[in-house]
Design a protein around this nucleic acid. Sequence first.
DNA 1: CCTACCGATCGGTAGG
DNA 2: CCTACCGATCGGTAGG
Lengths: 196, 196
Amino acid sequence: MAVETTRRRRIEDVASDLFREQGYAATSVRDIARALDIQGASLYAHVTSKEDVLWAIVDRAATRFEQAADAAGERARPNDHTARMAELARAHVRTIAEDVGAASVFVAEWRALGGERRAAILERRDAYERRFRELIAAGISSGEFRMTDPALASMFILGALNSIATWYDPNGRLTADRIADYAADLAVRTLAEDPS
Amino acid sequence: MAVETTRRRRIEDVASDLFREQGYAATSVRDIARALDIQGASLYAHVTSKEDVLWAIVDRAATRFEQAADAAGERARPNDHTARMAELARAHVRTIAEDVGAASVFVAEWRALGGERRAAILERRDAYERRFRELIAAGISSGEFRMTDPALASMFILGALNSIATWYDPNGRLTADRIADYAADLAVRTLAEDPS
DNA sequence: CCTACCGATCGGTAGG
DNA sequence: CCTACCGATCGGTAGG
């Protein structure tokens, strides 16, 4: 069973990278199989459908983002909204960097999912974005953040953070920590009250 | 000939919207034809291939971004890097809002292009990003912006701006001007020297 | 712009 | 995990 789990994970990892590079629709089952050095039809000994693979990737990525955000919430004092935003942004970037393939698929390829799964993942995406929006709203109420539209601010911040998934390279010049620092700084600067 | 031009444009507009919603690979020639109330094969009376339509959309969008950036460069004094960045960000957002479909395709679907066209558009994307990077570098040299990595800063700013293409709705609550204001502010805040 | 049609490829199944 | 194969759909052509 450990073998089975590993094989299944290798399929998902290989698929993540291909989906990231070419997109889900442009990646054939045979493309995935070729990357694993097996025949296209042989893939079906391990998965029940192509969409099942997509779902497994997206579902796991969503869970990782949620858990990272939970953990981030516990690392800062509840009323220190600036620190909480910094931790949240850093956690998001680290989660992307730990598995860029899966993160890219979560960000960009969930549209390919069918009815129920699509609805389920959309709901989780909404809930995740809500963490940002509500944190921003709380920081405004407390006077820590400047007056601004929390929905607009959260979309811009998440847009900036998610774009990392399109260019991040684990072997590149920019380390995950470096990027996470920059991201946290960007989020905080965007929200900070103007000095007077 | 005016008729021909219009028909061709309608095809590209319809295709832009479909490519934005479903992606290029997931959109069939028949999908495009259906949206135009004609038969799939009839489309080939107006275009030579599916990729030709993609190329036309991407090429025109690229030109619009380039021209908007040129115009933005002439609206601010050369040495006022803050004003130039604000104008550049605003121009970028306005260009997205004027045709979200085409902008989305330019941002996300250029990968589907074949060899030479893909290379050509990559080069133009690079040159466009270079405008941001070099403006940031110049602002740092002049002491107007804080010391930071221009490449990292430009990727974050463009990432934030481009994400607008995924959620902007011309009939939505947020007007293009409102979003452009926010975007210009975000770009400038990210780069501004810390007050001391 | 339509009907009729083409070869290639797609996701997936049967049976080992 | 393989070979052999399936129906459906793909982008595109011929001929009007």
